[in-house]
Structure formats: structure tokens, C-alpha cells
């Protein structure tokens, strides 16, 4: 059991690190595309037609990939009175319920996100002229990594909602 836990945490370390970098890159892409939009319109006087759509696409990926990192750090906000004032097994039970709720929601998002990704594949994304499935795919993909992050946080608990002071 312990070695299984350790193995899972090792897996999480790799995936969550990679996904965190990918989400950061998505944010950087959004910034670059947004700045390109301002520059091309104002300085070069030839407005880009794809930049706005790229910003939206990049940010969808940023949020869904960022979810893994957020869950791993326990950073999603909650009204955590019950958790803070409970101890021992009760505290652990609350954490378990929160984990199962989160996993259930992620399963829903994975399942129906996957179905949507398939169903909308013939729809084009205006501005980028690619299938909108490239946007919808962020939901099932993000849900998988988010589930790893959520489980890892249960096994190795952190609540940076409280500790992430700036």
C-alpha cells in the first residue's frame, strides 16, 4: 500500500509538473497573441484576424490544465469551517468526501467533455479555421490530469488556500 502511494505520488510529480508548465505556456501564448493583436492593429496597421480566437483557445487550455496544479495544491477555495475545526478521522473523512465529490465532477467533465469533443468536430472555430474540437478537448484532457492532482493531494495533503500567503 505504502509503495503504491509512493508510486502514485511519483507519477503525480511528473504529470503535475509537466501540466503546470503547459498551462504556463498557454498563458504566455495568450499574452503574446493579445499583445500581437494590439501591435498589429496600432503599429503595423494590419490587424491580425486570428489573435482573439487564439487568446480564447489558449485560456481555455490554461484553466483546464491549471486545474491539476490547483487541485494538487488544494488551492480551490472552500468555506472550510468544518474542515478546520475537525480533527483526526473526522478531518480525514471530510477530505475523503471532498475528494470523491471532486472526482465525480471530473468524471462527469471527462465523459461529457469527450462526447462533446466528438460531436462538435465538424464545427469550425471562427478566426482560426480549425475544428472547435481542439478547444473542447481541453475538458477531458484537463479532467484526467486534474484527477491525478486531486488524488495526490489526498495522499499528501496540502491546503495552500491557507498557506499560499504572498
Amino acid at each position: 500500500m505504502r509503495s503504491l502511494t509512493a508510486a502514485f505520488l511519483r507519477l503525480d510529480k511528473v504529470t503535475t509538473l509537466a501540466v503546470g508548465i503547459a498551462a504556463s505556456v498557454a498563458l504566455a501564448v495568450a499574452v503574446a497573441a493579445g499583445f500581437w493583436q494590439v501591435t498589429t492593429r496600432f503599429l503595423l496597421e494590419s490587424p491580425a484576424t486570428w489573435s482573439e480566437a487564439l487568446v480564447r483557445l489558449a485560456l481555455i487550455w490554461m484553466v483546464l490544465l491549471g486545474l491539476a496544479v490547483t487541485l494538487r495544491q488544494g488551492a480551490l477555495v472552500s468555506i472550510d469551517i468544518a474542515h478546520r475545526y475537525s480533527t483526526g478521522p473526522a478531518k480525514r473523512a471530510i477530505e475523503a468526501v471532498a475528494l470523491f465529490s471532486t472526482l465525480f465532477l471530473l468524471a462527469v467533465l471527462f465523459w461529457f467533455g469527450w462526447e462533446m469533443t466528438n460531436r462538435v468536430r465538424f464545427q469550425e472555430m471562427a478566426g482560426l479555421e480549425i475544428s472547435i474540437s481542439w478547444g473542447y478537448a481541453a475538458i477531458p484532457v484537463g479532467a484526467v490530469f486534474a484527477a491525478i492532482g486531486a488524488i495526490a493531494n489526498f495522499l499528501d495533503y496540502r491546503s495552500e488556500e491557507l498557506e499560499a500567503a504572498v
Binding site: 480551490l76 472552500s78 468555506i79 469551517i81 468544518a82 474542515h83
Partner: peptide
């Protein structure tokens, strides 16, 4: 769900 400390977005 709020009361049992489930994250707001999940709840």
C-alpha cells in the same frame, strides 16, 4: 456541500 468544506467550484 459548502457546509462540509467541499470546494465552491465543485459544489
Amino acid at each position: 456541500m459548502f457546509a462540509i468544506s467541499i470546494p465552491i467550484a465543485v459544489a
